[in-house]
Nucleic acid binder design. Structure first.
Lengths: 116, 116
DNA sequence: GATCGCTATTCAGTGTTGCTATCTACCGGT
DNA sequence: ACCGGTAGATAGCAACACTGAATAGCGATC
């Protein structure tokens, strides 16, 4: 993965995973797979598991151990009320940032057009 | 500043500053002021200076020392060709991420509506 | 029955980044 | 002589994503 992508994911990957869990509970391996499906093809598994530990410790998700037919037991994560609040906050922060960056982008395009 | 914002700025602040420089060359203190104007009200000065050192070392900007009437000499940064390329890459990475997150956001809103 | 492949989780160590806090330095006005 | 505003630099810290490897269960193949 490009270094740019890696750095940009800091602070957003957490929100992305919470958003995935908001749609439907899931376990680590499954979350990694969904991320890949949605275009984040190169996210390391270790990264996802570490993130899940963090959000669990912060009390944003509930965890349930479910035996698996093929492999060790799964830890199924689901977004709880606190996680829901946190996710709302995330959308707010994201919107703020996205708007400002979009403004900058458009301003540069205008500047280029004027300069040509 | 919220911790969420701080983390989300990692990886994007660099692009934001390069974008500001793409509009017009500027020196550190001025860049900080522009960031504040554009809504990033709590970005620490130390953060900006450190970032400028990094992008200078990577050769993304040209630097010129200009004496100031009120204070020590200014270091005026301007985006060079390499920085321009890097900024283009940044827009690409940003668009990719923004699209995916927007998709997730909309999917959650649909899920909520169906559930109500 | 030993190995291989897939599922599933965990962990130690690394690099990058933004923040805090502080320091230096120049200048004009009081 | 001092203070406030301008301007830049730096050391130490915390958070986060990545790398690479280890552990473990299960089914199928050889």
């Amino acid at each position: 993965m490009s270094k740019q992508t890696t750095e940009m994911l800091k602070g957003t990957l957490e929100g992305i995973v919470l958003a995935i869990l908001a749609v439907q509970p899931a376990y680590g391996y499954e979350i990694t797979a969904r991320l890949r499906d949605q275009g984040f093809s190169d996210i390391a598994e270790g990264t996802v598991y570490a993130l899940l530990v963090r959000i669990e410790q912060r009390g944003l998700v509930d965890v349930e151990k479910v035996p698996s037919e093929k492999g060790p037991p799964r830890k199924v994560y689901s977004l709880n009320a606190q996680g829901g609040e946190y996710l709302e906050e995330f959308w707010g922060t994201w919107s703020f940032l996205a708007e400002r960056i979009e403004q900058l982008h458009q301003r540069i395009e205008r500047t280029n057009e004027e300069g040509e």
